[in-house]
Design a protein around this nucleic acid. Sequence first.
DNA 1: GTATATTCGTTACTGATTTCACAATATCAT
DNA 2: ATGATATTGTGAAATCAGTAACGAATATAC
Lengths: 204, 204
Amino acid sequence: MISGKPIGRLSLYRRLLNGLMHEGVQSVYSHDLAARAGVTAAQVRRDIMNIGYSGNPNRGYDVRMLVESISNFLDDPDGQNVALVGVGNLGRAILAFFSGRRPKLSIVAAFDSDPEKFGRVIRGCRCYSIDQAPEVIRELNIKIATLCVPANVAQEIADLCIRAGVKGILNFAPVPLHVSGSVYVEDIDMTMSIEKVAYFARTN
Amino acid sequence: MISGKPIGRLSLYRRLLNGLMHEGVQSVYSHDLAARAGVTAAQVRRDIMNIGYSGNPNRGYDVRMLVESISNFLDDPDGQNVALVGVGNLGRAILAFFSGRRPKLSIVAAFDSDPEKFGRVIRGCRCYSIDQAPEVIRELNIKIATLCVPANVAQEIADLCIRAGVKGILNFAPVPLHVSGSVYVEDIDMTMSIEKVAYFARTN
DNA sequence: GTATATTCGTTACTGATTTCACAATATCAT
DNA sequence: ATGATATTGTGAAATCAGTAACGAATATAC
Ligand SMILES: NC(=O)c1ccc[n+]([C@@H]2O[C@H](COP(=O)([O-])OP(=O)(O)OC[C@H]3O[C@@H](n4cnc5c(N)ncnc54)[C@H](O)[C@@H]3O)[C@@H](O)[C@H]2O)c1
Ligand SMILES: NC(=O)c1ccc[n+]([C@@H]2O[C@H](COP(=O)([O-])OP(=O)(O)OC[C@H]3O[C@@H](n4cnc5c(N)ncnc54)[C@H](O)[C@@H]3O)[C@@H](O)[C@H]2O)c1
C-alpha cells in the first residue's frame, strides 16, 4: 500500500529529525525538513500525511512526535534481528558500522565459509560457519540478511537464507537475485553507482 | 536527455554481457538478458534502442557488439580518474574492491586527515593528506570523488572537492549533500537501505 | 476582535517511466 | 522459393511518482 521510495525517505527524515532533536529543536516546518532532506516541501507533507501524522499550521511538526510516528510506522515494536553473511572486507566494515547502533535492528550473527572466522567475535558479533546458518537463523528468529559474499555464491546463499525463514535481503553482491515474490530484495550495487556517477560527471 | 535509471541498467547489462562473453556466448535475446537483469524484455529493448544499437530479429543481440555500444555510450574514451576520501573501514574495503578492476575508471588517489595514513600505499592506492587534495585533484584531472568520511565533515569535503574541479560524487556518508546543479551526486545510504529491507521483511 | 501572514492537508495535475501490442524483419526447414 | 516461427523496433497506452495549488486552520500583530 505504501511503496519503496517513500519508506526510504521516511527513514531519512527520521535520521534528520533525530539530529534536530539532539540540538534541542522542538518543531520543524515541511520546507525546512525538505531542504535538509533534499526534496520538496510538498513531498515531505505528502509522506507525513501517508503515515497518518498531522502537523500544526503555523507551528509545523512536533519533532519528537513525528519521530515517534515514523518509528511506529517503520519499526517492529519487538525489534528485528539481522544476519550478515560474508565477513570479508565489506562485511567487517558493515559490522563495525552497525554494531550496537540501532536497538530495533541489530546484527546478531555473522556467517562465513572460512574456518579462520568460526567462533570468533568480530566487531562485537559472533561469527558462525555458514553450515550453521539454517539453525542459527531459525533460533534467533532472523528475518533479514545482509549479503556480503562473492557474486558467484550470492544466489545460493540467498536461497539458503530464504529456506531458513529470511524475508528481506540487503544484497551487496553485484548480481541480481532471483527470489519469490514474498521476499524483498534491496540491491546496493556500487559498481553500477560509480559508473552512473562517472557518466553524469562527464556529460552533465 | 537520457536519465539516471536507464544509465544504471546499462551498466548492469554490460556486466552481465561481459559474463556471458566470458562463457563464450555470442548472442542473446532481450528476454534472456531481461531475466538475468530482473527487468522486462520490453525495457531491455527500449534501453538498447535508446543508445542506438540494433539487434537482429531471430538472432537477438550480438554480445560483443552490444558491450561495445554500451561502453562507447557510458565510458570516457580517455578514461576517468577517481579520488577516494576517507580511508577508514569502508574506504579500505572499496579500495580493495576497485583496485585495478576497470581500466576506464580507476581510483588513483586517496585522501585522509589522519597523519598515520599519509604517504602510505593502501591497497595499491597512494594516500595523501586531505590538505593536498585540491592540488592532487587538479593535477590528476580528477572529476569523480567517492566520499567515505564521517557524516559531520561530508559537506565540507564535498565543497572542497567541487572547488578543485570534481563534477560527480559517490556519497556514502548518511547525509544529503547540498551542491550546485552542475555537480551530480549519487547517494549510497546503507542505513536507509537496511531500514527499508526491515520494513518490507516485516510487512510483505 | 479583526486582519494578516504563514503553514498544513489534500486534490488535481504534470511529466516521466514502463509496459503493451503489433508491424517489420530475419532465419530456417522444406 | 516459400511458409512458419521467433524476435526486434517502436508508437501508443497505462502506470507511477512528484509537483503545484489552494482551501482550511492557526498564530500573531495591532
Ligand atoms: N568491498 C567493496 O567495497 C565492494 C564493493 C562492491 C561490491 N562488493 C561486493 O560485496 C561482496 C563482498 O565483497 P568483499 O570485498 O567483502 O569481498 P571479500 O572477498 O573480502 O569477502 C567475501 C567473504 O565471503 C566469504 N565467503 C565466500 N564464500 C562464502 C560462502 N559460500 N558462504 C559464506 N561466506 C562465504 C569469504 O570467506 C569472505 O570472507 C562481493 O560480492 C563484492 O562483489 C564489495
Ligand atoms: N562502514 C560502513 O559499513 C558504513 C555503512 C554506512 C555508512 N557509512 C558511512 O561511511 C562513512 C565512512 O564510514 P567508515 O565506517 O569507513 O568510518 P571510519 O571512521 O572507519 O572512517 C572514516 C575515515 O575518514 C577519515 N576522516 C575524518 N575526517 C576527515 C576529513 N576531514 N578529511 C579526510 N578524511 C577524514 C578518518 O580519518 C577515517 O579514516 C561514514 O560517513 C559512515 O557513516 C559506513
